[in-house]
Simulated scan of single mutants.
Amino acid sequence: MAEAAGLAVGVVALAGLFNNTVECFEYIQLGRAFEKDFKTTQLKLDSCELRISRWGSSLGLNRNTLPAEISIDMFGSQSDVDHSMKLLTQILELFAEAEEVSAKFKSRAESGSNELAICDPQSDLDPSLLNLHNQIRTLAIDRQKKAGFKRRAKWALYEEKRFRRLIEDITELVGNLEGLFPAGTIIQQQLCEAEVAVVGKSEEVNLLKTIAAQQDKLLEAALQTGDGGPTTQRVEFSGDRNEGFQLGFNSGTISNTFGKSGQ
């Protein structure tokens, strides 16, 4: 009983960290140094936000009120919850460090310098990609716990190498988070299917597939399946020589011939 109560307290704290982390993505802007590859860079940032929002949602961390009883099977142990809090804290620290570097960059730049100009998704993305960007952001924001967060000032990333390292580090940490709670994997897959239902018809879906292949394997698999790509197939036979009762699941098409050759 005491263990469950302690775990519940830990999950409440974890939910707060999760929501703060998702919110951090909303304050990041990209400098004009990214203008040439702005659509790819912005979508990488959006995809990263979508993945972490899915992880938290799969565990119920976005609920306004947590369930009366915390599932030990879902959250593992107190040690796992503590570890996940450390991982989320690391992500928040990465954002804080990137924001600090941004502030130093601004202080060194000349006043009015074009170096400090900002890309604006609303005006700098073509309509099809802007629609995809807005769809992803809406999915992620809707997965936040509905609470009155204090609005923060937006800040910008100006250097490509800093952005690349930030995305790589966050991607690795989110992968570690997912590995801590395997009980949420099936729910994450279902959430991916819901995401594909929203974004899968976008003209820019191929670009999203490319990015997902680097950052989000679950989304990549869901996009492939939603596009008629590889599917999971399983067939079992009882009896010898492929004869007898067949038990199987197929989400695609199977073509086969049974019996002796020539028959």
Rank of each mutant, 00 (worst) to 15 (best):
D169L: 05
Q122C: 01
L132T: 02
L191A: 10
I187P: 02
I91E: 00
L87H: 00
G184A: 15
Q189E: 14
Q190P: 02
L94H: 12
N134Q: 03
M85W: 03
L130F: 01
K104H: 07
I91G: 02
R143M: 14
E97R: 12
S102W: 08
I136M: 10
K145G: 03
G76V: 13
A156V: 01
R162G: 11
D169A: 05
E195L: 10
E99A: 10
L88G: 03
D124V: 00
V81A: 04
T138P: 04
A103R: 13
S84F: 03
A153H: 06
V101K: 15
V196D: 10
K161E: 12
F149P: 00
V196W: 02
V174T: 06
I91C: 00
D124L: 01
G175L: 11
Q122M: 04
K106L: 14
L139A: 00
D142G: 11
Q90Y: 04
A183Y: 13
I136L: 13
G179K: 14
F95Y: 05
Q122T: 00
S111G: 02
L92Q: 09
Q78C: 12
N114I: 13
Q135C: 07
N114F: 09
Q144N: 06
R165V: 11
A98P: 11
I186F: 12
Y158R: 07
E97I: 09
D80I: 07
S79I: 03
S84E: 07
L130Q: 02
L116H: 05
Q189N: 07
V81Y: 09
I187V: 15
F95W: 01
A147H: 08
D142M: 13
L88T: 09
S79E: 13
D120C: 11
K150D: 05
E110H: 12
L177V: 11
S111V: 07
R108H: 12
R137C: 02
A103Q: 11
F163D: 01
D120G: 03
D169G: 01
